[in-house]
Amino acid sequence: MTTTSIPGTHGVCRDDFEPVRHELERTLASGEELGASICVTVDGEPVVDIWGGYTDAARTSAWERDTLVNVFSITKTMTALSALLLVDRGLLDLDESVAHYWPEFASNGKADIEVRHLLSHTSGVSGWERPIELEDIYDHESAAARLAEQSPWWEPGTASGYHAINYGHLIGEVIRRVDGRSLGRFFAEELAGPLGADFHIGTDPAHFDRIAPIVPPPPAEFDMSALDPDSIMIKTLTSPLLDYARTSDAAWRQAEIGGVNGHGNARSIARLQSIVSNSGVLDGRNWLSDRTIDSIFRQQADGLDLALMVPLRFGIGFGLPHAQTAPAVPEGRVCWWTGIGGSFVVNDLDRRVTFAYAMNKMSPQIIGSERADAYLRAAFGVVS
């Protein structure tokens, strides 16, 4: 391992992974990247753990080793991992109805929706019925209760419709009904704490001074108001509308929103997700059995996603490789996901590699970014 001291980048990078460090240096120097961290693990051990740039748009505060950032939908992979722990313990059945654990969810045509449908975005419940405001989802129990009362927006199990904001409310409520603890507490006590991972679903104010504020992307070039307000896409993405400016509010940071408000960095993402890339074993502990790991790769949907309007493949809890939508994700026994703006995680079980990337300057793409693709290609170019 070599320790880097080049201005703008810090951390450790094994010699053969130098292309990853060079790519981060390039994007930082060009201004494409403001501040970011990248971590790559092999067999659960970090071979890349680097960071650089700034935490603020004015470039007055350096991105440090322990800087945190809102990684948006990377949080979903932590929520899924939490649910898979309960599956592995025999407390949660992927093929059981959600209503078996959460009886109120059976109302209005949802009695046959299964747990796997929630984890694969195929439940038909991809958002809240209007009216709903962003602050309404900070209260998990009332927000989950509203979802339980709704009718599905399409026939469950027939297609994916990305559960953009409500993923953690749905799965988190199932976890609460099974275990008694909230999602954030379960995750902290069963995963983040035991693994020493600095990742939070519901972030304590004690960590606020380490959080790099999000720098939003340029405004969308198309007029959302010209689209059908009752389409699945518009209802999913605007009920409620994610306001990036609000993500620096204390109320947002402290809420347990298991779909979109996890705070961490590349190191903590890679640490936790290495459970998957190591086929369930990490630090000598069997976290997940082979059977539970295999369930991740049970394909649940392959086609045009009804909410994002791009083609996607979903297993259980993760996306599966898709050459068109995620061209830098390698083929094979691989699962992945991304956070809006560009944060990224890939678990490659064939090579026992986890790649993680977190940043504060958002890209305008819905799925990944050109920066993320460049880092991915640099990393997997070494191990392929």
Rank of each mutant, 00 (worst) to 15 (best):
L118T: 06
R116K: 09
G262E: 13
S277A: 13
A83C: 15
D15A: 09
T236V: 13
L349Y: 05
G31R: 09
F199V: 04
F380N: 10
G180D: 07
G52I: 04
S182V: 08
P218E: 15
D302N: 14
A80Y: 13
T67N: 00
D15M: 05
K76T: 01
L376G: 07
D16C: 06
P327L: 08
S37M: 07
Y101F: 03
R26C: 06
D305T: 03
I132Q: 00
V71H: 00
V383M: 05
G193K: 09
D249V: 14
P205V: 01
S73D: 04
G44F: 15
G317K: 06
Y357K: 03
T292Y: 08
Y162T: 08
G332I: 05
A29L: 09
I257D: 09
P205A: 05
T203H: 01
P218T: 08
R253T: 00
V260G: 05
V87I: 08
G193Q: 11
L241T: 11
R177P: 03
L349I: 00
A80K: 15
A379H: 07
T338I: 14
K361L: 04
T325G: 13
V20N: 04
R246P: 05
V87W: 15
A328M: 06
Q365T: 14
H140Y: 01
V345L: 04
L84N: 06
G317D: 02
S182K: 11
A188R: 12
C39K: 14
T2S: 14
F105R: 11
I293M: 09
D302P: 10
D230Y: 05
A99I: 00
A143F: 07
W102P: 12
E135Q: 01
S73N: 04
L195W: 03
K110E: 05
H263W: 01
E32Q: 06
G172P: 12
T292L: 12
S120R: 03
H140G: 12
S343W: 00
T247L: 00
A57F: 02
